[in-house]
Amino acid sequence: MWKGDYSFLIRQLVIKDFKIRYRNMSLGIFWALLNPLIMVVLFSFIFKQVFPSSIPHFSLYILSGLIPFNFFTAAWLGATTSLMDNAGLIKKVPVPREVIPVTAVLGNLVHLGIQFLLILAAVFYEGLSVNFHWPWLIVIWGLELVFIFGISLATSSLNVLVRDIRYVVESINLILFWLVPIFYTFDMIPMAYKDLYQYNPVAALVLATRKVILDGQAPPLNLMLKLASVAIVSLLVGESIFRHLKPRFYRYL
């Protein structure tokens, strides 16, 4: 059995991913900022000039929806293919397998950190400021991470056995883009769906983040309870699927 320093191992693997992604890029981490910037400019143009929108603090509104959504999709898809991308490690290095999808998710957390600077910039640009509800963001994002670890453990291990899973994940991400309030507001959702809508952890993440950043309020308790319960169920199910499929990885990779 592998005995060792998990935190050192995970840090080394995350640093590796980060370095190899940007080492040979002339513009380096600027690329992490470019995508959300382009989207904000595009959305701002469309929803100010084409379909005028009455949402206040529009650029911050878009960023606080888009950045969490982008993080979710990139982390989930990256983790789903991570076991296959690291087949060399799985087959030749006796390292705990769970570490691989977890690392893929955490690697995207680094990008989120960089992109969060954009949100911070937009907060000041819109004349808002950091309020004392911001520590809630840590709880919200912590629960979201737990949720992502869970689904990633499930899809990464299933993807080793059935390679179609990554396309399933891509399709779900496409659907989610429209089921998360990125450029429309939660108020526009018909009453009948509102309750169900909040069980979507990505939507819950965006709603709670906005509550804190834009409204300067603590996230509603029932929303947080939904997020927490979905996160815990996801982790339990994902971990159990991973544990059952783990012995097969060697033969299928």
Partner: peptide, 26 residues
């Protein structure tokens, strides 16, 4: 030969990563 190594990282970076894979602490 190259298990656990990444070609784009330097020898020193690969050394640390391999030490971590083998279970050494930082």
């Amino acid at each position: 030969l190259c298990s656990g190594f990444h070609p784009d990282l330097t020898g020193r970076e690969n050394l640390l990563m391999n030490a971590a894979l083998l279970g050494l602490d930082e």
